[in-house]
């Protein structure tokens, strides 16, 4: 996969995902370097595993479980992500977040 095709797909995915995250109250992380890295992983995952999966969650075998990890996976982890004010990999953060250093990964088991 050429650098150029990775970049082009990244842009396409980000445009589509923006449409989804906006009504859910999220925006792309203001840390551009992190967004760039995660999106690149997603483009590669899409080519290799068939979908732009979350790069920070181990992919289970069952389709039903895997599909809950396709980015943006916010609808399937709403309570968890709303409590963290970010999705697990922090590609997306709540719209009111400006200081991302305050964000922390907290497993769902600690929030239940």
């Amino acid at each position: 996969m050429s650098e150029r095709s990775i970049e082009a797909r990244k842009k396409q995915l980000m445009k589509m995902f923006q449409r989804v995250i906006d009504p859910l109250g999220y925006k792309f992380n203001p840390d551009n370097e992190l967004v760039d890295f995660i999106m690149e992983q997603e483009v590669k995952l899409e080519r290799e595993a068939g979908a732009p999966f979350c790069p920070c969650q181990a992919l289970p075998e069952r389709r039903e479980d895997r599909m809950k990890l396709v980015c943006p996976c916010i609808p399937y982890h709403r309570k968890h992500f709303d409590a963290m004010k970010a999705c697990w990999c922090q590609l997306y953060v709540h719209k009111d977040i400006t200081d991302t250093s305050q964000l922390e990964q907290i497993p769902i088991t600690e929030l239940e």
């Binding site: 989804v20 009504p23 916010i74 609808p75 399937y76 709403r78």
Partner: peptide
């Protein structure tokens, strides 16, 4: 509406 998120 999306079944898990009615904003979508």
């Amino acid at each position: 509406e999306h079944l898990m998120a009615d904003e979508l």
